[in-house]
Design a binder for these strands. Structure first.
Ligand SMILES: [Mn+2]
Ligand SMILES: [Mn+2]
Ligand SMILES: [Zn+2]
Ligand SMILES: [Zn+2]
Lengths: 128, 128
DNA sequence: TTCATTATTGCAAATGATTTGCAATATGTC
DNA sequence: GACATATTGCAAATCATTTGCAATAATGAA
């Protein structure tokens, strides 16, 4: 979990922001949070660091089709999935074990589940 | 699977394009395909129709974190998932049954799988 | 501690995807 | 065929994210 090579103030703030907000957050939300609690950090720096944090596996990128990415700290919770409300955008963690997850998750958290997306990422034979 | 209220030339072309390309395609790819095979259709019209097609459940939106959405016809194949190559962007369908899917999919198609994203969509108690 | 090196940041502008307002056009109906 | 209006094309706007570059801050050698 080493990001870049220097432990900067900006990086500390970004880590703390994501941790405190405790849900998948967008770059803009991180920006807003930092602005309110510390001295402002440039959005471009936030994007650059999120990119680094993702490459170095410090954060996960989570997608709900809102037109932007959300980020979550990787070391905080174990591997898990999400439930996204298409009405209000509320997000819930799903920490059930993966066998039969897709069946068992029905009505978890009182949600009425309409669909799910499951995508795998890796490298194809040519790119390995 | 009724889109809007008129079966227009533009809609026919979009359907055909997605069907012929036979993989999750972006709005721009649909635009390019149509331009080569028929008379050009405006990108804005493509976006407007994809939006409608999604709301009326004619297409699925698929996200790989590329910064854009991909669309797939819903009635063509049964429900399935995807494998995305982070090297070249190649996409494969995964049609295994869902019990133990996440375990069993390892090395499917010769891919080395690094991670997966599983998100559920629905309505929370407040929004139902 | 001070200094030098260079990674990182801020700022402004660029890019790319998607959305929107509006007038022109096409479709389904009578 | 003529009408009512859903749909389209076009241009401009918006939003998320990226990028170039000069200023600044972190780290380690002296
Ligand atoms: Mn989570
Ligand atoms: Mn598919
Ligand atoms: Zn809700
Ligand atoms: Zn590949």
């Amino acid at each position: 979990m080493k990001i870049g090579q220097r432990y900067t103030e900006v990086r500390k703030k970004i880590f703390t922001a994501i941790e405190k907000m405790d849900k998948p957050v967008s770059a803009q939300e991180i920006y807003d949070y930092i602005k309110q609690n510390y001295e402002e950090v440039d959005l471009a720096s936030i994007y650059r660091n999120l990119e680094l944090m993702n490459k170095s596996d410090a954060v996960n990128v989570i997608l709900f089709g809102e037109g932007k990415k959300r980020y979550e700290l990787k070391n905080m919770k174990g591997h898990h999935h999400h439930l996204f409300c298409e009405g209000c955008g509320d997000i819930k963690d799903i920490e059930m074990k993966e066998e039969n997850l897709i069946k068992n998750v029905k009505n978890k958290e009182g949600f009425v589940i309409k669909k799910h997306n499951l995508e795998f990422f890796g490298l194809c034979p040519n790119c390995q």
